[in-house]
């Protein structure tokens, strides 16, 4: 199980990377942490002509707080996010989600930007970014543009990234007073992709919820905002009736696809269980 042959470039600056992407077009693939890409190359599921390793380009990693925004460089590893005090303080959702990503050796290499660009619908970061209403900073030789996470994930493994573009950073609004986060996953083995997962966020005043975000992973071709359930909880007291209303709305919100082990019906059922547990966690 060896990859087919490819060329390799390790640009030292973004401009060099853009030039390589320009030159090779669709035959080039960006290599960040490589934790998904290299597995698929080993299995010969993909056969790019050239890998453009962005590992030596300065300025792509690191975690910083700028005003009310947490800025995470695209090449920041899962492990760095997991260990970051700034993340734990300003975006606890990410800190909660990070340990669910695979295993330590993979978290040491895999990156935030890589995960977002890969856009696996069962991955943790895409759902978290949507729930946090993060902004994805996308750069090309034409300059920078910012894409709301809610607009970024287009289809299965498909994002708003255009030819010649790469993710350079993610901007996340810092958690506000009274804001609560909860990240839940149902996995059969620790570190696996979830059957169903939920990134949840709300402001809590007394027991009243507002600014509710419920974003599921593993139930569609992209992270899925459960808008009906969000509306059912918005401005409501987090009681059994509100939870039941949210659960009822889930049936309309989600059109999950079956996977090899779990039917669509079971996924929908599990999504309903998770929303109740998420609300409990948010108010707990």
């Amino acid at each position: 199980m060896k990859p087919s042959a490819f060329a390799y470039a390790r640009p030292r600056a973004l401009e060099e990377a853009f030039a390589l992407l320009d030159k090779h077009g669709e035959n080039a693939k960006l290599l960040a942490g490589g934790q998904s890409l290299l597995a698929s190359l080993n299995m010969r599921l993909a056969a790019p002509e050239i890998l453009v390793d962005i590992g030596a380009i300065p300025g792509l990693d690191g975690i910083a707080v700028r005003g009310q925004t947490l800025v995470i460089g695209a090449r920041t590893t899962h492990r760095a996010i997991e260990r970051s005090e700034a993340v734990a303080k300003h975006a606890p959702l990410l800190a909660q989600a990070a340990p669910h990503i695979a295993h330590v050796a993979i978290r040491n290499a895999g990156t935030l930007g890589g995960s977002l660009a890969m856009a696996d619908p069962a991955a943790e970061w895409p759902a978290c970014c949507v729930a946090l209403q993060a902004t994805i900073v996308v750069t090309s030789k034409k300059g920078e543009r910012r894409v709301a996470a809610t607009d970024f994930f287009k289809d299965l493994y498909t994002t708003a990234l255009g030819a010649g573009e790469l993710i350079t950073a993610v901007e996340i609004p810092c958690v506000e007073k009274g804001e609560r986060h909860a990240f839940l996953e149902l996995v059969r083995r620790r570190g696996d992709y979830a059957i169903v997962g939920l990134a949840a966020r709300a402001r809590l005043k007394g027991k009243t919820l507002s600014g509710v975000q419920l974003v599921y992973l593993g139930v569609g071709v992209t992270p899925v905002q459960a808008k009906g359930a969000m509306a059912a909880l918005e401005g409501k007291t987090a009681d059994d009736a509100a939870i039941r209303a949210a659960q009822d709305a889930i049936a309309r919100d989600l059109e999950p696809n079956a996977d090899i082990y779990t039917s669509a019906e079971a996924k929908r059922h599990l999504a309903r269980v998770l929303v109740a547990r998420a609300v409990a966690a948010l108010v707990g």
Partner: peptide
Amino acid sequence: GEIRRGCLTLAVQAD
């Protein structure tokens, strides 16, 4: 100094 999957790392990345 950090553990990695040797099968998900290219040798050239270790430069």
